[in-house]
């Protein structure tokens, strides 16, 4: 795996816990790189459980939302699992307005999301 610029990944058990390196996720080039780095986690052998922790992320554009939709599709293709956590209230509202909270499984924090992912086994 080449060096990651947009995300930091820690492995907890068999879950890839992803944090974002930037406060604002809006630039097209950035979103493209972000997508490549996230998708690459699903190309590796082994676990396809992803937890995206949005702590520190202040802003997501519709382009970023679209990338998450593509990621969700890919996760389903490889029979993986995807959870989102730590969305600030304004971003949570964005997910509610767009009904994407029905597409994604969103949790308050990593502990809740990890417990849910582990209950999938």
């Amino acid at each position: 795996m080449s060096e990651r610029r947009r995300i930091t990944v820690n492995t907890v058990g068999d879950v890839h816990v992803v944090r974002f390196n930037d406060r604002k996720i809006l630039d097209t080039t950035y979103i493209g790189e972000l997508g490549e780095e996230l998708f690459s986690l699903l190309e590796e052998p082994g676990s396809h459980k992803l937890l995206l922790n949005f702590d520190g992320v202040e802003f997501l554009s519709s382009g970023a939302l679209n990338k998450l939709i593509f990621l969700d599709r890919r996760v389903k293709e490889v029979s993986g699992s995807l959870r989102l956590t730590n969305l600030r209230p304004e971003l949570n509202e964005v997910f509610m307005i767009t009904r994407l909270h029905e597409l994604f499984q969103i949790f308050e924090d990593e502990v809740e999301a990890l417990a849910d992912l582990n209950s999938d086994d």
Partner: peptide, 10 residues
């Protein structure tokens, strides 16, 4: 719901 379009305007 799973289509990646229309959210910016919305």
């Amino acid at each position: 719901l799973e289509a990646p379009s229309g959210r910016g305007l919305m």
